[in-house]
Simulated scan of single mutants.
Amino acid sequence: MSDQPESEPRGTRPRRAPVPPGLRGAAPALLGYAAVRALGTVILAVAAAVQGKDALHRLNGRWDSVWYVRIAENGYGYEVTLPDGSVHSDLAFFPLLPALERAASEVLPVGAATAGLVIGWIAAFAAAWGVYAVGAHVAGRRAGVLLAVLWGVYPTAFVQSMAYTETLFTALAAWSLYAVLTDRWITAGTLCALAGLTRPSAAALVAALGVTGLVRLFRRDLTWRTVVGVVVAPLGWLGYVVFVAVRQGSPTAYFEVQAAWGNNIDGGVALARFVGAQLTGPVPFAGIGLVTAIGLLFWVVWLCVKQRQPLPLLVYGAGIVVISLIGAAYFGSRPRLIMPAFPLLLPAAVALARPARRTTAALVVALLAVASGAYGAFTLLGSGPP
């Protein structure tokens, strides 16, 4: 089945000529990304050595990483009952990463934990490459390079060096979006389906493809490849929800499992209560800081709209933000959940990409890399999960 480019729907093609995403063109982005992530890793290693802690263990042997390794080694079926009676089931974790960990550990002379770290690092570079490809296609090579590097200095970018799913998901999402932008819908739908086997936030990517396809329908520019891509896109996410439903004997089992973890959708009530508690607590400046951060987040979303980003990027970026804010999840994890929304960084990348701002761009990236590395070391060497 051929998946060749078709005519682009009006309003979604960038004005500039498409930029090929080849490795040679992406090399500056990948080298820049490698440099900032290496700096973050060095900062973590130094801080861990000073405290007498194992830096590697922080990257592949704690929190969610442990759950993925257990699934890779033993399959699904593990549960933990907490003192308050709530049950945490491993069915809350999607299957693609542990499946890859198991496959890699069968082929390579390493355990599943090390395999997860290797997969995470490879996926991180695949993600940076995809982020560059999208940015270069929309705004030019220089902006694409800066977009990839800025994604590498995101405040919670330390997760990109962990055996977590964020890098794998971002890689699949970025290349799926690039496939949409270049009108390769079957490829886009297939990558989206794989993303749906990686993280629940793939719903935002499914929405991006669906809304874009719907616009093509209204414009009478719908083709069979677009239909196939849109139909295939949600199959990964839906397939896992059905798997959990059949396994547990309840059509709502997946949502019940997530609710037991405290990840139910409450429309942002938990977030509002947390912010309110900070505002009225002993340190109200913390609450003011949170309100400012949330306001800044929505301002960035508005900048993306004002920038007239292609529709798939707007829907995906805004969708990730909404999904990350309307759940009752642990507040500290929300910045990590938003990290795959790389289109939010495009306005900054375009602004810094101007030739007159080369020195400014280098200084900004250097400062952000140090700050991101320091924050990562502080978080990973602490007691709580990211």
Rank of each mutant, 00 (worst) to 15 (best):
H88N: 14
V80Q: 15
G140W: 13
T114G: 10
V138Q: 02
G140H: 10
A126V: 10
P109C: 12
G85S: 07
P98R: 01
W129H: 11
S89A: 14
A139S: 09
A123E: 13
N74L: 12
A124T: 15
A115W: 11
G120V: 05
S89L: 06
S89T: 07
E106W: 15
V134W: 06
V134T: 00
A99E: 06
D84K: 06
V134I: 07
T81M: 11
A127K: 07
G116L: 11
A112H: 02
A113T: 02
E73D: 15
F93D: 01
G140C: 05
L96K: 13
G111Y: 01
I122A: 14
S89G: 08
V87H: 04
L117R: 14
S89C: 11
F93W: 03
A128P: 03
G77N: 15
V138F: 06
R141N: 08
T114S: 09
L108G: 13
L100P: 09
A128Q: 02
H88P: 06
F125N: 12
Y132G: 03
L100Q: 11
A112E: 03
P98T: 02
H88F: 15
Y132P: 03
A128M: 05
N74K: 11
D90H: 00
P98G: 05
A123V: 06
G77D: 05
V131L: 07
W121K: 13
V134F: 04
D90K: 00
V110Y: 08
L100S: 01
G140F: 07
G75Q: 01
A128R: 04
V80G: 09
A123R: 11
W129N: 10
E73Y: 02
A127G: 12
A133V: 13
L117K: 13
A136T: 08
A139M: 06
G85D: 03
P109Q: 14
P109I: 09
V80F: 14
G120P: 04
G130M: 10
V134Y: 01
V80S: 11
I119W: 12
E101Q: 15
E73L: 09
E73F: 00
V138K: 00
A92Q: 02
A92D: 07
V87A: 08
R142Q: 15
G130K: 04
G140R: 07
A126I: 07
Y76R: 00
V131A: 04
Y78S: 13
G135E: 12
V107C: 05
A136P: 04
A139H: 00
G116M: 08
A128K: 05
S105L: 07
A103K: 07
V80C: 03
G75N: 01
T81S: 11
I119G: 12
P109K: 03
L91S: 00
D84M: 04
A99R: 02
E101V: 01
A133R: 05
P98N: 02
A133Y: 11
G130N: 05
A124M: 14
V107S: 07
R102G: 06
